[in-house]
Amino acid sequence: MKHERPTGEIQETAALYALGSLSQHDARAFENHLKEGCGVCSAELRRFEGVVGFLGLTASDAEPPAYLRELFAAHVEHCAREAMSRAEVQAEKKPPAKAAPRLRNRLSAWSRALSWAMALGCAVLAGYSYYSWKQSEQSVQERTTELVAARSDAEQLSKMLELERGRSRELEHLNAILERPGARVVLLTGPEPSSSASVAIFWDVARRRWVVTGRLPKAGPGTEYKLWYVTRTGRYAAGILQQDSEGHVFTVLEGPEAGTEISQTIITLEPVGGSAQPTWPIIASSGK
């Protein structure tokens, strides 16, 4: 039902919706009503959305830390480099000339025909080979399958054993640090509640040793995780984090000097080879 004029109820609903203060149920109902094309409600909502947009100016300015700007500057530089390399790749892919389109079409047709003929030949050959092999090797196949399965089981058991040994060594490291006087633990989590990133730094302050352990999303090809710490004087690289094929992270790094006041620790995804400054994105971070 479309409204003809704004009532108190309409204004109330539009104002609360603009503020994000309606219940989910009422918000969905209002959205459905807007979809029906009610001009009165749309106009009221636009009016209040404008108010909500500017209420933010009633908060005082605050200076964000300088490292954030440098983070953006690095991101912008990275994007510009990527755009340039994309443009170069596209330029290389371009055909050299427009001349002789008929010849190119003819060559292209021949090339297509040839590739189809080759594919057909391969398929016939593969079919024949498969038939022969199946006839002669059926019994051998059964034994091979059993052997492969047994070998796979043995390999899996060996991997599990090695994993357990690794975890045990890690726990020894962590226990040794936790028993040290003044030991600290710094927790880093991903920016989103749903993030799977969860890392802890076990800090042996006296010996300047950081043992970093936890789980991070698997780093893509050509990238690696890097740990940074932020102080009043700047951002410093703590080191590259080693990650196994399951996403588990365990790395021993040299920690900062005793007495260093760290305001934040962050983990970023960097191209392999390293970056002098953290770039993008922040995968996990922590306060003090």
């Binding site: 933010g56 908060a59 005082s60 605050a62 200076e63 964000p64 700007r69 953006f72 991101h75």
Partner: peptide, 22 residues
């Protein structure tokens, strides 16, 4: 991309103030 940095310079103080207050 450089426009993002200009936008940051033009708006980060009021945005950070608002976020901090919330």
């Amino acid at each position: 991309a450089p426009a993002l940095l200009s936008l940051y310079d033009a708006s980060s103080r009021p945005l950070f103030g608002l976020i901090l207050r919330i």
